[in-house]
Computed example of a mutant assay.
Amino acid sequence: MKKISLFLITSFLVMSCQNQAQNQASTTKKTDFTTTKMEKQTIYQFKITDLNGNEFDFETLKGKKILIVNTASECGLTPQYKDLESIYGKYKDKNFVIVGFPANNFGGQEPGSNEQIAAFCQKNYGVTFPMMEKISVKGNDKHEIYQFLTEKSKNGLQDSEVEWNFQKYLINEQGELVKVLSPRVLPTDAAIVDWINGK
């Protein structure tokens, strides 16, 4: 009898341990899933300072399509400012906005201060779309908004790296990243215009 009782107690303990292990594994899986799901972010969480030193809250852009572009004043692609201003002028009343981020990450092609950049944009291209303060878009000091744009764990779409000045990121009306376009894709390209028009 003692042997049978000991066998039953041992069996019971082993089964209890197995059940506890399974429950812990199940809990861990749920926790991991929740964590992963929560990491996906939207553009609306960010507040930044614009070229004039004022706070810019992305939450104010809810319901709009947003084109984000890193800019530079002394780049071969700098004339894209003209096309950016052109499509902004055409579609700004149709729930579309462009947000520019001057950056000096490529060939030292944006050396100026925020004040100098603002003057350059106004004088040469009559820029009226929102321009933010100069930031870094890659490397160890990459700004948090570009961490969101370039890291799949945060944007939920894809990992990317900013290749050069004037790379474009398209954000939908829910604040989610939907497309990454290379610097050489012009702002007036069908890929952008069709997206703005919902085609």
Rank of each mutant, 00 (worst) to 15 (best):
L157P: 08
I43Q: 03
E151S: 13
T36Q: 14
K65P: 05
D32H: 08
E74S: 12
I196A: 11
E85K: 11
G53R: 02
K30A: 10
S16M: 15
K179R: 12
N155S: 08
N155L: 02
G89D: 14
I66E: 00
G76W: 11
D93S: 14
A72E: 02
H143T: 08
K134T: 06
C17M: 14
K65E: 04
L157S: 05
R184F: 04
Q147D: 12
T60A: 13
K30L: 10
C121K: 00
E85F: 09
N104V: 00
M1I: 14
A25D: 10
T42Y: 03
D159P: 10
G112T: 03
E74G: 01
D93N: 15
G108P: 09
N165P: 06
V162I: 15
K3L: 10
K65Y: 03
L186K: 15
V69F: 02
T34A: 10
E55W: 00
C121V: 02
E59I: 14
P187E: 09
Q80W: 09
Q167I: 05
F129G: 07
P102D: 03
K37C: 07
N124G: 07
C121G: 03
G198S: 14
P183I: 11
S73H: 01
D189I: 05
F129Q: 09
V185Q: 08
Q41N: 13
F46G: 07
S153Y: 01
I87C: 03
G100I: 01
S113I: 09
T128V: 10
E163S: 14
A103K: 01
D57P: 08
I9N: 07
N105H: 10
Y146P: 07
R184T: 15
K82T: 13
L181R: 10
E115R: 10
A25Y: 06
G89N: 15
W164Q: 10
F12L: 15
M131W: 03
Q158D: 07
G175N: 07
T28E: 13
D50I: 02
V127F: 06
E161N: 13
T49P: 01
F148T: 07
Q80V: 11
K168T: 08
K82Q: 15
N95P: 10
L170S: 03
E161M: 11
G76I: 13
V127N: 03
Y91M: 11
I135C: 03
K40W: 12
I87G: 01
S73D: 00
T42M: 04
V99F: 05
E176Q: 14
Y169I: 04
A190D: 15
K62W: 11
F148L: 09
I9T: 15
D32M: 10
Q24V: 04
I117M: 04
E144A: 13
T35M: 05
T150I: 02
